[in-house]
Nucleic acid binder design. Structure first.
Lengths: 344, 344
DNA sequence: GTGCTATATGTAATCGATTACATTTCATCA
DNA sequence: TGATGAAATGTAATCGATTACATATAGCAC
């Protein structure tokens, strides 16, 4: 049977004090005498009291929760970032809510509703493809100070963000291929409007130019981060007259899709063609061949995003403005087996 | 600037009715005259009113949220189930909270706290390894009627659950290998205490017995669902004198880890050894070789879990008892390239 | 028109915690 | 001793929505 849950009143009665004292024991214990504090805590234990979040939230006008907006929960990269965020909240007094952006644009429910329904105090957005309308809604409703972007970010919008050093990641990848002896390097991009696509492609092309490598239009292949776009890109590469000897992919998933197509068409990786990915998801180490890739520090990204968000929330409560300089997290090249010297 | 958010009072004033009428317009519109209903909705629109969840929750003694307890967010299988659950809630009036079991057992915070703090109305648990103490806590606090298990389930505990037909999945896998001509079939299990481990291993061994296949002790290798345990199992297999010709793995991740080790030691899959997985995560199609595996219907599992949970919550509100017969979701064998006829 | 019922709407208590303000307690010192 | 101020505690208003109960209104039969 569910026994009646103790309310703050019950604790107060048990301890022989007022509700105010009980409340203070929880939020400002230093205001109380050692003796009363002990009595109150004893009463809390004996009654099994738990603060009712709804009541507290109503009174304090807070929600005690933050929302993480994920473009695609099924994608291991995002779910691992999510794990990082979840871990970073750790013992803090916040619940983590999640929403998949796909569900909500279709369901007619806007993300801003979470704020307006007083359900969340802030949001970490992993999806840079927020529509301008949605952003305008945030602005109009005065909640844009409680949003930080992580990994991706909204183009042209000065909101706080945490991101990997995508440009450097691309440079590292190209440079590594160059050092192995490759000159004909292709790139499979993300979706056209995506900010990561842009950063990584520019980083790649800048490095290619710097190293005076040949650039062919068809070596920049449009993808969308997915396994399937890697597969399709592979088909395009197979059909080329002047094939690249190496491919830098905008994500590990794309690299897997690519390698899958290449190998099932008789090309060997890395003997016939080298492949480099981006992300270093857990599986990359266990692919055949193990994937050489640019590592994003998911734990760090998550932790930084959380602390940035908490800072934003603090600032927005004291109605300060908040610096919007992006936080850049360093990346590493993880050298494994999928890239090797070209087979002249 | 954040304008003052409209309260139900403001709407009532704007519409020239009482707060009760506004509240009814939202929850029981059929009680109102067409005319007043229109007026109220117009006022809601013009004021931009949103119901304050904290206030509603306090008054109705509900939380408007459910918790999904995930053993490991980084694991694509779980995150895809989570996506299914999230999608299944869709437009319903619930928020989805997540927690990684690892964080909480370490953080000292118990899952039951979510219930007791009146933050959630129910829970979907994807982790069968809930400690007896925790379960007892649920029982003691009368919340065990608001919990359903999905995929995994707690051993010896009669709580509602949704699960794949694990035994049949194992049978399908073994049967497929048998039909290809394999007789020496090994199995990499999950962690020892896990319910899935047990179901799949028993299914596998029963089928092996039925088909009168040889059974060697060392062909049952203990793993833990992870990539790394697949790798270790691979090393064990490589060291065997009497090697199996096929391996049925308890998860796709294990299969990847295994294939990674086998191939980097010069064995070819499937020419030298066949491999079958379990789960059919998205990547399985794109591994090299593409993985033959037992498909779990994630969308269906998620959807069933959600509707089962909602039924439980309803029942527990009207203090009915609820049937605890597990819901079994069918599985399919997906035949790809990682299993082929043995190379005698 | 009166009485009765059904329908529509209003009034005000309530959920449980927080906190401004009021009051009590107590130590300190002239 | 009594005055003074600081520290500890209590009283009660408050957050915003829901809903039991009260009241008003309309419809209908006689």
């Amino acid at each position: 049977m569910a026994q009646k849950i103790a309310r703050i009143q019950d604790v107060a009665r048990a301890a022989g004090v007022s509700t105010a004292t009980v409340s203070r024991a929880l939020s400002n214990p230093e205001l109380l005498t050692e003796a009363t504090r002990q009595t109150v805590f004893a009463a809390i234990r004996s009654t099994g009291y738990r603060v009712n979040r709804a009541a507290r939230n109503l009174r304090t006008q807070q929600a005690g929760a933050i929302l993480v907006l994920v473009p695609n929960l099924g994608n291991p990269f995002f779910s691992q970032i999510l794990a990082g965020i979840s871990a970073a909240f750790g013992s803090r007094d916040y619940s983590v809510l999640i929403a998949d952006t796909k569900d909500h644009t279709t369901g007619g429910k806007h993300v801003v509703d979470y704020f307006l329904d007083a359900q969340i105090d802030g949001m970490i957005c992993l999806d840079g493809a927020i529509s301008p309308e949605e952003l305008q809604l945030f602005e109009d409703n005065g909640v844009s100070g409680k949003i930080v972007f992580a990994c991706e970010w909204a183009h042209d919008v000065a909101l706080p963000s945490v991101r990997s050093d995508n440009v450097r990641g691309a440079q590292l990848a190209v440079r590594h291929l160059y050092d192995l002896g490759h000159r004909k390097i292709a790139h499979i991009t993300g979706p056209q409007e995506n900010v990561l696509t842009h950063a990584r492609r520019e980083g790649m092309m800048a490095e290619r130019t710097r190293l005076e490598l040949p650039a062919r239009e068809e070596w920049i292949i449009r993808g969308d981060f997915s396994l399937d776009s890697g597969r399709k890109a592979g088909e395009q590469i197979l059909a080329m007259n002047d094939r690249p000897t190496a491919v830098f992919c905008c994500s590990d998933q794309v690299a897997f899709g690519l390698m899958s197509t290449l190998t099932s068409n008789g090309l060997r990786v890395p003997e016939d063609i080298s492949v480099v990915g981006f992300d270093d998801i857990e599986l990359s180490e266990f692919y055949v061949p193990a994937l050489t890739t640019v590592r994003q520090d998911r734990r760090e990204l998550g932790a930084r995003a959380v602390s940035l968000l908490l800072d934003c929330i603090d600032a927005s409560q004291s109605s300060q403005t908040f610096a919007t300089e992006p936080v850049i997290v360093d990346v590493d090249l993880v050298v494994r087996a999928s890239a090797a010297a070209p087979n002249w």
